[in-house]
Computed example of a mutant assay.
Amino acid sequence: MAKPNILLTRIDNRLIHGQVGVTWVNHLGANLVVVANDKVANDEIQQNLMDMVLPDVISARYFSLQKTIDVIHKANPRQKIFLVVKDVHDALALKEGGVPIDKINVGNMHYEEGKKQISSTVSVDENDIAAFKRLHELGVKLDLRRVPGEKGRDIMGLL
C-alpha cells in the first residue's frame, strides 16, 4: 500500500471555511481537501456550501470516517491532501484506523457548556483531553495554531 501524500491534518469544527479554503490550502500547496466526517459525508447542502469557498483549482471530497480509512491509501501520489476533521475524536478514529497521520494542526474547537478554554479558539472537555493524550501516545505531533503565520504551540502543554 502506498502512503498517501497527506500534507497536514487539521481539526476545525467549521471544516472548510475561508481560513481553511484559502489561507491553509495556499500555504500547504494542497490540490485536494478531504473532509472526513460521518455527518457531512451525507449532507450535500453543507458540501455545496463548503465547495463555494474553495478556489476552482482545488478539489474536495467528503468521506465518512470509515470510507476515509478504506480509500486514503489508494490516493494518487500527485494528490497533495489537506485532511480536515471536525474534532479530535474523528482524528483519533482515523489514526487508529490506519490513516498515516503524523501531525495535526488543532485550529478550532468551539466552546460548549462543560468545556474549558485553553486558547482563544480551542476548548476541551475530559473526553477531548483523553483523545489528545492517546494521539500523543501514538506519536502524533499536536500543533495548536489558527493560521500558518502564527507561532504554533504544543497542545499537550496546555492540557
Rank of each mutant, 00 (worst) to 15 (best):
G21C: 06
V20W: 07
L49K: 13
V33T: 09
W24D: 04
V34P: 10
N37L: 00
A30C: 07
Y62V: 03
L15E: 04
T68W: 00
V57A: 15
D51I: 12
D38G: 03
N42K: 14
I69N: 04
A30G: 11
Y62I: 03
N26I: 06
L49W: 06
L28M: 11
L15I: 08
N31C: 07
M52A: 14
Y62R: 06
L15V: 10
A30V: 01
S64D: 11
V57C: 12
K39M: 05
S64P: 01
V57M: 13
L32P: 07
V71L: 10
K67S: 12
A60N: 13
H17N: 07
Y62D: 08
K67T: 14
D51C: 13
Y62A: 08
M50F: 05
V33M: 05
N42F: 11
F63N: 13
V25D: 09
Q66M: 09
V57D: 15
L54V: 04
G29W: 04
L15N: 09
Q19Y: 07
V40S: 05
L28V: 01
N37W: 01
G18H: 08
D56Y: 14
Q66F: 01
N42A: 14
A30E: 11
N37A: 02
G21M: 06
K39C: 03
S59R: 15
V33W: 01
D43P: 02
V25L: 11
T23D: 13
I11W: 04
I16C: 07
D38Q: 06
Q19C: 02
I16M: 03
M50P: 02
I11V: 15
V71G: 03
N26S: 10
N13T: 02
Q47G: 03
I45W: 12
I58C: 07
Q47A: 09
V22S: 10
I45E: 09
L28H: 10
V40D: 10
Y62W: 08
H17D: 04
L65P: 01
L65V: 14
N31I: 01
Q19W: 10
N31Y: 01
D56E: 14
V33C: 01
A30R: 11
A60Y: 00
V57F: 15
L65G: 01
G29K: 05
A60C: 12
F63H: 12
S59M: 14
L32G: 05
V53I: 15
Q46V: 03
I16F: 06
K67L: 13
K67R: 15
